[in-house]
Design a protein around this nucleic acid. Structure first.
Lengths: 222, 222
DNA sequence: CTTGGCGCGTTGGTATACAACCGGGGCACG
DNA sequence: CGTGCCCCGGTTGTATACCAACGCGCCAAG
C-alpha cells in the first residue's frame, strides 16, 4: 500500500488528480509545475509522467511537454472493443477450467455484500472483478493486458459509475456472469460478458459525450 | 528512421542486442554498464530500460536492477492466446468493413512477391502483415496493443522463422487470409487467423523449448 | 496580411553527489 | 566443520545544477 518510491507516490497522486478532475482535460502539465506541486525533483516526476502517458492519461509531444488529454469518443469505443475481445477470451478460459475456486467465491461475496460507493470506488471494484475473472482464466499475460486497458479507460468509467442505478445494474450482471462461470457454461459466459461490455461501451461513449459537452459549457461559463 | 533522441537510440540498439542474442538470457544489465556500452548517460538508459521492461524484454527488480529474462514456455503460450483474441476480433472487423482497400492490395503484393529472408527480417515482415490487417479493421487502439504483443513475443518468433519451409507455410496462410477478408467472409477469416495463430503458437512453444535446451547445453559447454 | 527573426520557456541530456537498500562474502561462534 | 550474522561494496533512486536543441508566440518589416 505504501509507495516504495517517490516516483510511485507522484504517479499515484497525479493519477488520482487526473481521474478526479483536479487536473482538467486540456491543461498543460510541465515537469517543473508537477515537481513543485508534488514536492519532488524532476527526476521522479519525469518517470511518473512517462507512465501516465503510456496509459493514455497524459499526452506527450516531444520537446513541448505533457498535457491532460481531451477525451475522444471514437477512441473510447475502440478501447472497449479491445477490452471485449480480451474479456470474452479470458472468461471462456475461466468457464472452461475455473482453476481458482476460492477466488471465484470471493468475487461472489464481494458483489453480494455491500455495494460500492458510486464514483472512483465503484470503478476500482468493478476493475477488480473483471481482473479477478481473468485471473481465474489462468492467463497472467491476459490479465496484465486487461489491467492496462482498464487504466486507459478509467478516466471515462468514473463518469460511467456515478449513477447508483447503473451500479446496481452492474451488480446483477456480475452475479449472472459468475453463475455461468460456475456452471462451466463457456458459451453463455462469453455471451454475457460480450453483452455486458457492449452495453457499458454504449453508456461510456454517451456519458463521455455528455461530459465533453459539460466541459464546453463549463469552459464558456468560466 | 533516424532516432530523434538518445533514449530512443539506446532503446533500439539494446532491443536489437537482446533480440539477436548479443545479450544472453540471464545476464544482469546494470544502468551503468549499459550507459558505458551505449556511450550515454544514465538518464536515457533508464528510460530505455523501463520501456524494454514493459515489453518484457527485460525484467526489473526494484533496487537490484535489470536482467535479460529466461524465456518461459508457459508465458509464450499465454501471450499467443492474447494475440489470438486480439487478431480474431480485428480480422473480423476488417472483413466486415475493409476500409483501406489500397492497404489490402499492398499487403497482397508484399507476400506475392519476393519472400522474406528467414530470421529477423521475416519476423518484422510478418508483424507488418498482421498489424496492417488490424489497421484495416480500423481500430487504432487494437493495432497499438497488437504491436505491443508483437514486441513481447518477438524474441521467440525469431527462432520461429529460421526455417525457410516455415516461411513458405506462412505465406500461403497469409494469402488465404487475404482472400477471405477480400471476400468479406468474416467467419472464415476469423477461423483462418485463429488456426494460423494456434499453429504458430505450438511451433513457437516447441522451438522455445529447443532453444532453451540449447542454451542449457551451451552453458554447460561454455 | 504575410514572413522572417528573436527571445523565452520547456524538454532532453549530462554530470555529480548521496542515501537507501540488497546481496554476498567473510568472520565469529557454536 | 557447519551455521548464522554483520558489514561492505555495488546499484538503484533521488536531488540538483547546467546546457543545448527546439517549439512557440511576439513583433517588426516588407
Amino acid at each position: 500500500m505504501a509507495p516504495r518510491s517517490i516516483a510511485e507516490s507522484v504517479y499515484r497522486r497525479m493519477r488520482s488528480d487526473l481521474l478526479r478532475g483536479r487536473i482538467l482535460p486540456g491543461t498543460r502539465v510541465t515537469e517543473q509545475w508537477a515537481a513543485t506541486r508534488y514536492r519532488a525533483s524532476r527526476t521522479p516526476v519525469r518517470e511518473a509522467c512517462r507512465r501516465l502517458a503510456e496509459e493514455g492519461l497524459l499526452t506527450h509531444r516531444p520537446r513541448h511537454g505533457y498535457a491532460s488529454p481531451v477525451i475522444d469518443q471514437g477512441e473510447i469505443a475502440e478501447l472497449y472493443d479491445v477490452r471485449r475481445a480480451l474479456e470474452v477470451a479470458s472468461v471462456r478460459a475461466a468457464a472452461a477450467a475455473p482453476g481458482d475456486r476460492p477466488l471465484l467465491a470471493q468475487l461472489r461475496r464481494a458483489w453480494e455484500g455491500e455495494p460500492p460507493a458510486p464514483g472512483e470506488d465503484a470503478v476500482y471494484r468493478d476493475e477488480a472483478f473483471h481482473v479477478g475473472l481473468a485471473r481465474i482464466g489462468g492467463n497472467r499475460s491476459m490479465t496484465a493486458f486487461l489491467e492496462q486497458i482498464n487504466a486507459r479507460i478509467r478516466l471515462v468509467r468514473v463518469h460511467d459509475f456515478l449513477d447508483p442505478q447503473r451500479v446496481r445494474w452492474t451488480i446483477t450482471q456480475h452475479l449472472d456472469l459468475l453463475d455461468a462461470v460456475e456452471a462451466r457454461d463457456a458459451d453463455r459466459a462469453a455471451a454475457l460478458v460480450d453483452a455486458h461490455i457492449a452495453e457499458s461501451q454504449r453508456h461510456a461513449v454517451d456519458s463521455a459525450g455528455a461530459a465533453l459537452a459539460a466541459l464546453w459549457t463549463g469552459a464558456a461559463a468560466g
